[in-house]
């Protein structure tokens, strides 16, 4: 296996495990952690293809990852604020119990 394939396999595993966590775990915070893992998998792909692909001097992979990190930070802040608001309203952060749109 080339180093590029190692990186891509790690990224695929991170994506799969993040997806599994986001879909199967009950707690809302763990769903957010799963989403962060999936974003990291995408970033790892960008960096791996920047390193081993053509025209690395254009820095596009690095710039994209920097913007993606900023957006991931914004997403985590809003998501955790939502989790806290739901906990304050419903006294639970179990996603199986949060089913209503109204109330």
């Amino acid at each position: 296996m080339t180093p590029l394939q190692v990186c891509l396999l790690v990224s695929a595993f991170l994506f799969a495990i993040g997806f599994a966590g986001a879909v199967t775990r009950r707690h809302a915070i763990l769903v957010l952690i799963g989403i962060e893992l999936m974003l990291n998998a995408a970033n790892l792909n960008f960096i791996a293809f920047w390193r081993y692909g053509a025209h690395p001097e254009a820095l596009t992979g690095i710039i994209f990852v920097l913007f993606s990190m900023a957006l991931a930070g914004a997403e985590a802040a809003v998501g955790l604020a939502l989790v806290i608001a739901i906990y304050r309203h419903k006294k639970t952060s179990n996603l199986d119990e949060v089913k209503e749109l109204k109330g």
């Binding site: 695929a12 997806f19 009950r26």
Partner: peptide
């Protein structure tokens, strides 16, 4: 700690990987 339909989620993510 798992949701009710966790088996389907694990199967889908295993297929993705």
């Amino acid at each position: 700690v798992l949701t009710s339909g966790w088996l389907a989620g694990v199967a889908v993510s295993a297929m993705v990987f």
